[in-house]
Design a binder for these strands. Structure first.
Length: 611
RNA sequence: GCACCAGUAGCUCAGUUGGAUAGAGCAGCCGCCUUCUAAGCGGUAGGUCGAGGGUUCGAGUCCUUCCUGGUGCACCA
């Protein structure tokens, strides 16, 4: 009895075979509250037309004939539905014995690129969404059996980085070590933007010069200082990476030219000698994106300069493994001990034997506003005439997320209207600390728990709704410590821990599974759902499915914990249960605790044992 | 103009790929700590699922036409 719904649908299929309708798909679902039974199927509906009988009659007939799998006591036709009653003891036991981790033999290698903040300013709340979303997706894909490499792209040759670095010289500023470096630099960037109104020409020329130096990789150390400051914030949020990819390394490695060379061989890419696009290199994407007014996309301008999409395409070609050639070295040891690598001209192809950039699937976590360029990148791969690149196109996915506004106001890094991530984290933690002080003043590790709860609340708020939904960040809502939030689930976990802490040492001895009943079945059903949730979340790149599940599980557990009988007396007190029943319940609580912790971990939310 | 996304309770959102009476949280009202953590639980109230048409035994979910809001559509980066 490894998985009950599999067993049930197998049993049903057998009956359907006898009835001569073998190919029908059988779905097993949990029975809604208030209806008889634990699991049910609407399969009879679909058979009504084929068998020319009413679904109710068919349901009855199936119930008569079905051979029930182990652990199922009986089947009942409830109108057109067929519902099953599980044997509580064996069922709950089988759920408890289910392994937490998924065994997925079809797991692939996946690159997840996220964060990729311009290295010229502090991260703000919009970046937090990217960081947290990408991090959660990486965790979920890993749990689903994939091998994941997390990349963080450093756009160190862009105009923004150049402006910030130029601003240091322009204003003669010096970092005195007060506050974070990225914050300090970001302020200079905003100041420079304002100064451009009076001194635009000088500034533009200066920035151009810095850009050329950046492309040659001469200011690597300066950019690295910003990147390290930004990474501190990412670490504080619980996100870690495998590889930093520097744009200057990509540029100098010639990937752009190599990518263009591949593209030129495509029949969809041409260099017209006359007309609107004379002299430019254009790609006709109409075969990939039908219905466009203008199917031609300029890759290289007639003056010979490559467009930004062309760089993106070259980068994606490299990610897809169409060409190699970058070197790497170790960059950092992250808080968990996980090593962080970086592309580096003076590095080696496989530093310390580590094989990097190898994947069949590529997930780019980038804002929705980049949907068009991201589609063009996939188009370029699809139109490149090789089986490899076609596969890479199919394996490329854009996880698009909507913007985050702040109390109704849209943010702008350029103007300096932004809510810095560091401030949000600090505020979240201090709110958590205040609650601890009020509710549990004697809690030992108060600071550590405040951090776990505050950061957890923030992450959860960013992941709770679908990525394609706009989030208006409001303090009260996002950092709420009650209701549909991380602390709600963390509290449920801590509560389970607390019970288990005071449980006798005899766990597992004299367990009487038969003493369990319907209440435990309901709770176990939610526990059993995790594997399907992980699979769906991985397939759809949708962490919000996991947040929803975490809430479901915490709610089910809290409901169980507080349950009262018809006379209003608590009837689920674990430690006061009769011997035998107590052990069985303790085993279930242990499973609930572990499942809560595991599913929170998929979201990058820590689960304190006390709070 | 064309394309993509969204529209579900006063507010913020779910809705297991077409199944049973559309669910949570917040806000409101009423209850529950002599009992394993009340950051919790129960109850109550709140809905034309943007509108119309269609497919289906069955539609919040699928097809279609509208309405509203957002974003994207450069030889910019």
């Amino acid at each position: 009895m490894r998985d009950l719904s599999c067993a049930l649908s197998a049993s049903l299929s057998l009956v359907l075979d006898q009835l001569g309708v073998g190919e029908t798909e059988v779905s097993i679902q949990e029975v809604p509250l208030g209806k008889p039974g634990d699991f049910g199927t609407p399969v009879a509906f679909g058979l009504a037309r084929v068998l020319r009988k009413s679904p109710t009659l068919i349901a009855e007939k199936i119930v008569e004939r079905i051979e029930l799998p182990n652990g199922v006591l009986r089947a009942e036709a409830v109108g057109p539905y067929i519902n099953f009653f599980v044997d509580p003891g064996p069922y709950v036991r089988s759920v408890i014995e289910l392994p937490l981790s998924l065994v997925n033999t079809s797991g692939t290698e996946v690159i997840v690129e996220h964060t990729s903040v311009n290295p010229n300013k502090e991260t703000h709340i919009g970046h937090v969404r990217n960081i947290v979303l990408g991090d959660a997706v990486a965790r979920i894909l890993t749990a689903a059996g994939h091998t994941v490499e997390v990349q963080n792209y450093i756009d160190d040759t862009g105009r923004q980085a150049a402006e910030s670095l130029f601003a240091i010289d322009y204003f003669g500023a010096r970092y005195d070590g007060e506050g974070k470096y990225d914050r300090w630099l970001g302020d200079l960037y905003v100041r420079l933007g304002r100064a451009k109104e009076d001194d635009g020409e000088v500034i533009d020329r200066g920035v151009d010069a810095v850009m050329r130096r950046l492309e040659r990789g001469e200011l690597r150390a300066e950019v690295e200082a910003v990147v390290r400051a930004q990474l501190e914030t990412c670490y504080a949020l619980g996100a870690e990476y495998d590889l930093l990819v520097w744009e200057s390394d990509i540029v100098r490695s010639g990937f752009l030219d190599r990518g263009l060379k591949i593209l030129r061989e495509s029949e969809h890419v041409s260099q017209p000698t006359e007309g609107k696009f004379a002299g430019a290199l254009v790609m006709d994407v109409s075969a990939f994106i039908p219905g466009l007014e203008e199917p031609n996309v300029v890759l290289v301008r007639s003056d010979g300069n490559a467009m930004y999409v062309a760089k993106d395409i070259g980068y994606q070609f490299w990610k897809a493994g169409l060409f190699k050639g970058l070197n790497y070295r170790r960059f950092d040891t992250q808080p968990s001990g996980r090593p962080l690598y970086t592309s580096a001209p003076d590095g080696e192809p496989e530093p310390g034997g580590r094989r990097l950039v190898h994947a069949q699937e590529i997930v780019n976590v980038i804002g929705v506003e980049q949907s068009h360029p991201q589609t063009l990148v996939r188009a370029a791969l699809a139109l490149s005439d090789s089986a490899e690149s076609l596969a890479a196109s199919k394996g490329s996915r854009h996880l698009a997320y909507e913007l985050v506004s702040f109390e109704g106001q849209t943010m702008s890094g350029r103007k300096g209207i932004a809510l810095p991530a560091d401030e949000v984290i600090e505020e979240a933690v201090s709110r958590a600390r205040a609650v601890i002080k009020r509710k549990n003043p004697d809690l030992g590790p108060a600071d550590e728990v405040a951090r776990q709860v505050g950061v957890g609340a923030l992450r959860f708020a960013m992941l709770k709704s679908e990525a394609r939904r706009v989030i208006d960040f409001r303090w009260e809502q996002a950092l709420s410590l009650q209701g549909d939030s991380a602390p709600y689930a963390q509290y449920a976990h801590a509560r389970a821990c607390s019970i288990l802490r005071s449980a006798p040492e005899v766990l597992g001895i004299g367990t009487d599974w038969r003493a369990l009943g319907e209440l435990e079945v309901r709770l176990a059903q939610v526990v059993a759902r995790l594997p399907q949730v992980v699979a769906a979340a991985a397939r759809d790149l949708a962490p919000h499915l996991v947040t929803q599940y975490v809430l479901d599980l915490a709610t089910a557990w809290n409901g169980y914990y507080n349950h009262k009988d018809d006379e209003g007396r608590p009837d689920t007190q674990i430690l006061r249960s009769a011997p035998g029943l107590r052990e069985a319940r303790l085993a279930l609580v242990t499973k609930v605790r572990d499942t809560l912790a595991a599913s929170l971990d998929l979201l990058g939310v820590e689960a304190p044992e006390q709070m």
